[in-house]
Each structure stands twice: as C-alpha cells, then as structure tokens.
Design a binder for these strands. Structure first.
Length: 353
DNA sequence: TTCGTAACGGTTGAA
DNA sequence: TTTTCAACCGTTACG
C-alpha cells in the first residue's frame, strides 16, 4: 500500500502494482486493436506493457469484456445453509452415513451439482463442527428438532453461490460450464453497465474535470492517496463486488506521475466519436491534462452517462461463459488471432499523434 | 521485432 | 479485529 502514487514501467507508463489499469485505458487498448493497431504499437502508445495489452486483448477476445476480473475474496462457499441442512438430514436419517455418501446424495438429490458440491473433507468438517455440535448432547442429533425432511430452503437450480446481489460468482477459473447458472455474467461486473455505467469507466474523469475537481482541486475532492479515498471499500457497494472490482481500478488509480499523461497526448478527446464524447470527454482540452495524475474514477459522478454507440458492448460479454484463465489455470486464453472482432459503434479515428 | 506467457510481487476481500 | 488464503492485477523477462 505504499505505492499509492504508482510506479513507472519500462515504457514510462504509470501503474499501480496489483491494481487493474483504469478502464479507460483498457477500453483504449481494445479500441486501438479494433482499429488494426498492433498490440506492440498499442503498448508503446499507451505505455502499457505488451504483456498487459496481450492479456487484455486476449480477455476481450475471450469474453468480450474489457473489465478486469473480480479481485480478492474467497472462493464461493459451497457449504451453504441449505447444504448444511441437507447434510444434517442425511446424518439424521442415517447416523452411520459416510461423508462421501453424503456427498453423493447431495449430488443425487440435486442439492448441489458437481461444481459446488462440498468436498468430503468439507462435509466431514461440517459434521464435526456444525452438525456434531448441534447434535450434542444426548446423541448425534439435536433431539429431532429438525424434521427428517424439512423443507429447508427449496433447492434453487439457479442458486449457486451466496453472493449478494445480482452478481455472479467469479467462476472464471471454473471449467467451461460453471454450473446451472448461465455463464453470461460469470465473472463480470454483474450490474454492468447499469449501476456503474460506462460513465464510471470513461466519464468520471471528465466529469471530474468538468466539475473542477481536476486542475488544482483534486487534492481535496480526490485525495491522491488510496487510503484516503472515502466510500470506496468493500462495504460501500454491497451489491457489486465485481462492480467494485471493475471500477476500483479507476477509483483507486491515483497515479499522479506524469508518465500517463502521455495517454492524453496519444489519445486526445477528439479521438472519440461525438457520441462517446458526450458527457465523457467534454473537456475539449484533452483526455488527461498533461502533467496531471490519472484521476480516480468511481462513483463520484453518477449522473454522467454515455450515449455513445455500443460502447457498453465492450464492457459486456461477447459470449456467455468466461473462461479466461490466468497462468495458474494453464492460461488457455484465446489467441489473439482475431483481435479485431468488432465493437460496433466504436469507430474511433486513429489517434492524431 | 512481435507476441504469448510464466514468474513475480503486489492488492483485495471473504472466511 | 486480525489473519489467512486464494482470487486478481500489471510488469518483467524469456523463448
């Protein structure tokens, strides 16, 4: 957390280690690729490492989304209350049942599917820690307080993970089929682009600029230090963890170093079609005033909207299912053989640089 | 020179 | 409240 101000990469670009690039940059990468600009050139222009360009383009090709994945958090819990109840039922019905038998029954009864069924060890732990304690004293069960076949929570085939809100689980690393949940939103900001619309990606900066937060007042309006950012925490937006993940990259991109001001020179506001500039790049002076830090983007300008074309399509999935995997999963990210799959409406004139 | 990707050090957030 | 762990990130370096 000491890299509040970011670091400078070999290309002179500024980045915050561990944090996603601002969505504006991510979008720009995709846009430039759409224009036929080679990734290596994009890398140089935006001063983003070519590895990152490659990864973002590969992800886009794979998912149709420019957004980063949901950062942080733990694996979705599989031992939901419903599952625990069923396990309890099974144990009550057959005190001698083995954990692996419970597991099989969870599958057979449709309580879980193969993607979210607890492991045998998890079941054992549940039996030991939860059900076992509940069953004490006086025998393995709690005196039959639970009916043998209590309705419990009706099994919802759509239920998979106890994520709050409309979000889908970050199942990016799951296999092709994450389960009963249609993968259309898997791993992406679920409410995108509604709750945190394109404006949050592209518009806020300009909104900030327009509202004067930039140009001398950013210090007060937008504290440069990450930890000074109010309201940007994991509880502020309870319904959108991934949204946060998607926007925090901008929210928390303080990056005052001048390196990324190059983005402004390479990517002037006029590079965007009028539709996209509406409410986004209203400041005619440019995208980022030279010498200014990247302004964090976030929920500071909820009124800003973008009417431009299919910009949102870049934020949405091109295809259901998100199988973008990181290196840890074997990195079967799609080859960038077709980096120019169209983003209709994103006809952006080549940079005037 | 270009591109894909493993390794690395970092951040984040749920448990 | 703190710690742990497993997600994710972008950069770097290598092939």
């Amino acid at each position: 957390m000491e890299h509040t101000y970011g670091e400078v990469n070999q290309l002179g670009g500024v980045f915050v280690n561990g944090r996603p690039l601002p969505n504006a940059i991510r979008l720009r990468i995709v846009e430039l690729a759409q224009l036929g600009i080679r990734p290596c050139d994009i890398s140089r222009q935006l001063r983003v490492s070519h590895g990152c360009v490659s990864k973002i383009l590969a992800r886009y090709n794979e998912t149709g989304s420019i957004l980063p994945g949901a950062i942080g958090g733990s694996k979705p819990r599989v031992t939901t209350p419903n599952v625990v109840k069923h396990i309890r039922d099974y144990k009550q019905g057959d005190p001698g049942i083995f954990a692996w038998e419970i597991r099989d029954r969870l599958l057979a009864d449709g309580v879980c599917d193969k993607y979210n069924v607890p492991s045998v060890s998890s079941i054992s732990r549940i039996l030991r820690n939860k059900i076992g304690s509940l069953s004490q004293p006086g025998g393995p069960y709690d005196g039959g307080k639970q009916p043998p076949t209590q309705p419990a929570l009706p099994y919802n085939p759509l239920y998979q993970y106890p994520y709050p809100g409309p979000m889908a689980p970050p199942a990016a690393k799951m296999s092709a089929h994450p389960g009963p949940v249609p993968a259309a939103h898997v791993g992406l900001p679920r409410s995108w682009p509604s709750a945190h619309s394109v404006s949050n990606i592209l518009g806020i900066r300009t909104f900030v600029e327009q509202t004067g937060a930039l140009g001398g007042t950013e210090g007060s309006a937008y504290p440069p230090k990450m930890e000074d950012w109010p309201g940007v925490n994991r509880t502020a937006f309870p319904s959108a963890q991934a949204d946060k993940a998607a926007v925090e990259g901008d929210i928390k991109y303080p990056q005052p170093a001048p390196g990324l001001s190059s983005v402004g020179s390479f990517l002037p506001a006029c590079a965007y079609p009028p539709g996209n500039q509406h409410g986004v790049y209203g400041a005619p002076g440019g995208y980022i005033p030279p010498g200014h830090p990247w302004q964090p983007q976030g929920h500071h300008g909820p009124g800003v909207t973008v009417h431009g074309g299919d910009l949102a399509s870049a934020m949405a999935f091109k295809q259901p299912g998100r199988e973008v995997t990181d290196r840890k999963a074997g990195s079967p990210v799609g080859k960038s053989s077709d980096p120019l799959s169209p983003i209709h409406g994103l006809s952006i004139p080549a940079s005037s640089s």
